[in-house]
Design a protein around this nucleic acid. Structure first.
Lengths: 222, 222
DNA sequence: ATATGACCAATTATAACAATACGGTCATTT
DNA sequence: AAATGACCGTATTGTTATAATTGGTCATAT
């Protein structure tokens, strides 16, 4: 990160947004938490909304980095169940990412209404295309409808985050156990008969991810 | 149903609650819709809350009847994936049941805050016990943790209902396809090696369901 | 007996207004 | 140049009084 001040502001915002939500965290609060003056904020960001936008981008970037990292280290990371497992693991490490996926009004507040750009872009279509590519690379059984499979993956991703609001926490098993069980289920159902080609799957993932990463870093050289 | 008037009131309430929600549907509205006077309502129910309570009980009963019916007709209905599939099918046939599982404040309104009795009883523990019984009856693989499996079933049940609030409807596949795919996944992952004993599973289900049904009918002889 | 709707207390919605807090700016300081 | 915080117009929130609606009752009618 080039600019330590900018980084401080983002870190302060992350902390406050998660604790009090976007609406209840004032620019003055953020300035105080970051150890600078209110006016100083506006030397680095043109609005409070833009702070949130940058924060979302950063968190998404870091989540993806974690994901790729997990995948490359996992022998089965190139197969569908391995990728999905590691994506879920990367997601649940960030409360902020979870609040995005939930579209949590408590955290994101009025930013949800205003800024639809970042948050509304539909991740499901990306997932569908991805599954098709994985089928071609012999990482997923070919006789399954990518649209339906992607949707079930969307469902599990959503509910792993939201179910805490619907069940007593005492009845929720450890999140790692749940993720492992989901991966097991997907492996049994969707891995090709011959086990699949994990190395090829990793290639598919990197071929999509690396250009996106490069584009992001060029736009945000921090 | 013994009393046609009572039935009319419940039917009128169901219609209005689903359309306008519990809070926005007044007792006068219900009376009008049912074709009787407001005072008449109180000859059959002691409060507006009690109408909702009876309605919930009725809807749950009917959902269970549909479920058992589907299961008995399905050759694989006695296996875990068959039972779950048919339970999901029975659920999505009733908007009311879906609003209960969502704890939809738009529909249930202030009834959610007041009456916790009916809605808060945790269905997850029932599911765990059920899976254990199914394992003993050779309908589910024995090397899986019932707590985790039950939780994943809770997750899928929840998200099949709630995901419409999070995705464009254009990107949601037909609900029947989704349910079939979930069943396929569960069959691959959790059916015993030998295919399992569907008839035994049906016995397990009826052994639990029939006494519960009898108790309900005795309490509500309508 | 059964059913009605005018009536009641209690809750909730509406309106008008005052007070506050907010995001953002900019003259001044460092 | 870089950073500050007093300042500004607006939007939100709090307050109060008043009006309307609601769930539930019960004297009366059928």
């Amino acid at each position: 990160m080039h600019d330590i001040k900018k980084s401080n502001i983002l870190e302060a915002s992350r902390k406050l947004f998660l604790r009090y939500g976007f609406d209840k965290s004032t620019v003055a609060d953020i300035a105080k938490q970051a150890g600078i003056s209110k006016g100083g904020i506006y030397l680095y960001f043109k609005s409070k909304d833009q702070i949130m936008e940058q924060l979302l981008l950063q968190e998404m970037y870091e989540q993806n980095e974690r994901w790729i990292d997990f995948v490359l280290k996992d022998p089965e990371g190139g197969l569908l169940h391995g990728m999905y497992k590691n994506q879920l693991k990367a997601i649940v490490e960030s409360e902020f990412i979870m609040s995005i996926l939930k579209r949590d009004t408590e955290i994101l507040g009025s930013y949800l209404q205003k800024q639809d750009g970042l948050l509304s872009h539909d991740v499901s279509n990306i997932r569908i295309e991805f599954i098709k590519k994985m089928q071609n690379a012999n990482c997923v059984k070919k006789d399954v409808d990518p649209k339906v499979l992607a949707h079930i993956m969307d469902m599990l991703e959503l509910s792993i985050i939201t179910i805490a609001d619907h069940k007593d926490i005492g009845n929720i098993p450890p999140i790692d156990d749940v993720i492992e069980q989901i991966a097991y289920m997907m492996q049994k159902a969707y891995a090709p008969e011959d086990g699949g080609d994990s190395a090829a799957g990793k290639e598919v993932l990197l071929a999509i991810y690396n250009p996106a990463k490069k584009a992001y870093l060029e736009e945000n050289d921090d």
